[in-house]
Nucleic acid binder design. Structure first.
Lengths: 146, 146
DNA sequence: CTGGCTGCAAATCCTTTGCAAAGCC
DNA sequence: GGCTTTGCAAAGGATTTGCAGCCAG
């Protein structure tokens, strides 16, 4: 019997390889929007011969088939997220954490004017997360100077 | 009398320099989501001694003061947008153009659950723009294989 | 004078590419 | 066998850093 990850791959006509399975498993187990480095380092332990190129390749093909989502929210590194159900992202400007936001955006696609065909809607929010508010941390950067 | 760009800078306690003024003026005159390269090349003509470092520095400080918005929508280069009124962005997957989308998102901030404090809402849409639909161009990538 | 700004060059960091070896149908 | 994937090394490209000179207050 196929495990769920192999099934995901087969359904998308992506060849099943141990590396791809491990990456999917990792993303499914770590909803922390990891970077390539995070994934690479973590899986390198189990499989020392793993190459970063393979991580890039795998993420690219998974992304193209929309099994995962690529985030370029903050900083220079891309971050990745398995696509269970579509959701949005909140970046805390204080602690840098990216938090999943579940909001139904009914009919938002129809609201986009101009006759464009919308395939994907991604809401991107910035602010201060609950945790940092509680701890009384303030926002970094220049925003408070004014 | 101060020109509008000098005024914007002063109001944010950013020192007024010719380079910063030119960058603001450029962004205000070119709502095409230019890259650093675009800005640098354009302004280099007028001011041959301009350095790309200065463009980076200026954009960073303008961004921190929220006078401009940094977009990381597509590809590896950042793109920049002056903040007149807040709007959203649509990336055409066929021609790569980034199109401004004006949508009022009433109460969206309140919809974000979990007690986070939301400062910014940025909608990010992907699809095929009207122009490409008309011309019958199709989307690139693997998305159509499945 | 003093601190910040500029601009050149070098360094750094993320990502992509080239290619040979290995694996699978 | 032929085609895809892997993984190493090198290349590429965007951004950052170090630092000397410059400018404004």
């Amino acid at each position: 019997m196929l495990n769920q990850y192999a099934k995901m791959l087969k359904e998308n006509q992506i060849k099943v390889t141990p590396q791809r399975l491990e990456i999917l498993r990792y993303l499914d187990g770590h909803h922390t929007h990891p970077t390539v480095e995070d994934i690479y380092t973590a899986l390198k332990t189990k499989n020392p011969s793993l190459s970063k190129t393979t991580v890039y390749n795998s993420l690219e093909i998974l992304n193209k088939h929309k099994l995962i989502q690529t985030l370029t929210i903050s900083g220079s590194e891309s971050r990745y997220d398995i696509r269970e159900d579509l959701h949005h992202h909140f970046l805390c400007e204080t602690c840098g954490t990216i938090i999943d936001i579940d909001i139904a955006c009914p009919n938002i696609k129809k609201i986009v004017k101009g006759g464009h065909q919308v395939y994907e809607v991604h809401g991107y929010f910035r602010g201060i997360c609950k945790n940092c508010i509680t701890k009384g941390r303030s926002k970094s950067g220049y925003q408070n100077i004014a």
